[in-house]
Design a protein around this nucleic acid. Structure first.
Length: 384
RNA sequence: CCGGCGGUGGCGGAGUGGCCAAUCGCAUCAGACUGUAAAUCUGACGGGCUUGUCCCUGCGUAGGUUCGAAUCCUACCCGCCGGA
């Protein structure tokens, strides 16, 4: 199921093969985000041309729309979206944060350094988000689609994920806000741990499945909680592990935190870092021992006009690119860079044409995947 | 030539005597975004500097009324519509 081909002598990085019933993933690997069973703006065939090995879809969103029944009756997620390579589904645990305190406080999972503001945003025990209710047994959501009430707990989430049929699925957790105090985070962690056990229990029910279940380590920015969580989750019979939540607002801290966690996880199982991956983070997290990681950045930024290139980020909405006849990145082998120039893409953004987003999405994914591919090469050669 | 309507910032378009450098769109410029409520959000957007409850210029042009006019009056110029 997971084979480690090589361990770095210079860091905790490792080269591996993660086997699923829809094929193998060379790790470390980047996992593009296909929340609603699509990489926004691209068809699955187009995504295949971006060197993407595996995608991650979202349980919460697919439960809401179109509902797991429709997906299942269509032959499962792979067939439904015409993607025959491996898939993951996130459990909905992140939506506990993003639709909850994240939305209320206007914060992302990584806190920025505006110290004055964060004091007002501290979340402590007993507090509830405006639009959802977090109980010991699960979470009541208000649907962002139509306002309907909707309940998710470990049992529900796993049931849904089984119906969806991704190769790798995740335990249901509470992703805590980065402004949560120690008490809140501790209490939440106990819940996430209980939910992990319940997720496992539900996973084992019924007919055998070739799906893999990953548990999720939480604990916020608190070292002892992170270690406690890694020990607890690591000891459960999961097929692999996700690491969720925040990682401090300092890049050095992030690297350290991941290292604490990873040192407590079984070595022979894959580790997925949830939702991290600015380009500059990638070498660091891989060196810390991460095998797979997902991030919305390449696709999300693409739709905002940002292209990632070997010479930095480019904002293709800026007028200066109207006079730039170079490809996005001379060194890039993607379809966009083979066929189009910066001035054309800039024009498309200014004219509000959807093709602009398609061209950048395709490029950014190819660029991220190539970036990680190079890192795999470096590990192979003993350089990293 | 006569009659009607109208001319406001890069554009569209509010405002119809003091609270107007002028609501709001768009465009432009700058910034943000890390398990996607996100083709989104935030800020700037007449000029100046000592960046202020500061100064200057400004609502077609030129005059007038008024303590005070983008807003009222007169003439002229321009646009659209209708009539000779």
């Amino acid at each position: 199921m997971f084979k480690i081909l090589k361990k770095s002598k210079k860091s905790n990085a490792r080269l591996g093969i993660l086997k699923t019933s829809h094929g193998e993933i060379e790790t470390p690997a980047f996992v593009p985000v296909a929340t609603q069973a699509t990489i926004k703006t691209l068809t699955s065939e187009e995504v295949k041309q971006t060197k993407s090995q595996i995608l991650i879809c979202n349980t919460f969103h697919l439960h809401l729309k179109p509902g797991e029944k429709i997906v299942k009756s269509s032959g499962g997620l792979h067939k439904f979206m015409n993607w025959n390579r491996p898939l993951m589904t996130d459990s909905g645990g992140f939506q506990v944060f993003s639709l909850g305190f994240g939305r209320d406080l206007g914060v992302g999972k990584i806190l920025k350094n505006d110290a004055n503001n964060t004091n007002k945003k501290i979340v402590s025990i007993g507090q509830q988000p405006k639009f959802l209710k977090i109980t010991d047994n699960g979470v009541w959501f208000r649907s962002p689609v139509d306002g309907k009430k909707l309940f998710l707990n470990p049992k529900e989430s796993i049931k849904i994920q089984k119906s969806l049929g991704a190769d790798i699925i995740f335990a249901f957790d509470e992703c805590t806000p980065p402004t949560a105090d120690y008490e809140y985070t501790k209490k939440s962690l106990e819940k996430t741990h209980r939910w992990a056990a319940e997720s496992l229990k539900e996973f084992k029910k019924g007919e055998m499945t070739s799906q893999l279940l990953f548990g999720i380590v939480q604990g916020g920015k608190y070292k002892d909680l992170r270690i406690e969580s890694a020990k607890f989750i690591g000891a459960q019979p999961f097929d692999g592990f996700g690491i969720g939540g925040e990682f401090g607002n300092d890049k050095k801290i992030m690297e350290k935190m991941i290292s604490w966690i990873i040192s407590e996880l079984p070595e022979n199982k894959p580790r997925h870092l949830l939702g991290i991956g600015y380009l500059e983070d990638i070498p660091k997290i891989i060196k810390a021992g991460i095998d797979t990681f997902d991030c919305i950045v390449p696709t999300h930024y693409a739709r905002r006009g940002i292209a990632f290139t070997s010479s930095g980020k480019l904002d293709l909405r800026k007028s200066l690119f109207l006079n730039d006849k170079k490809p996005l990145d001379k060194k890039c082998g993607c379809q966009t860079c083979q066929n189009y120039k910066r001035n054309y893409i800039c024009h498309l953004f200014k004219a509000n044409e959807i093709t602009a987003m398609r061209l950048l999405t395709s490029h950014n994914l190819y660029f991220f995947n190539s970036f990680v591919e190079k890192i795999r090469e470096e590990i192979k050669k003993g350089k990293l």
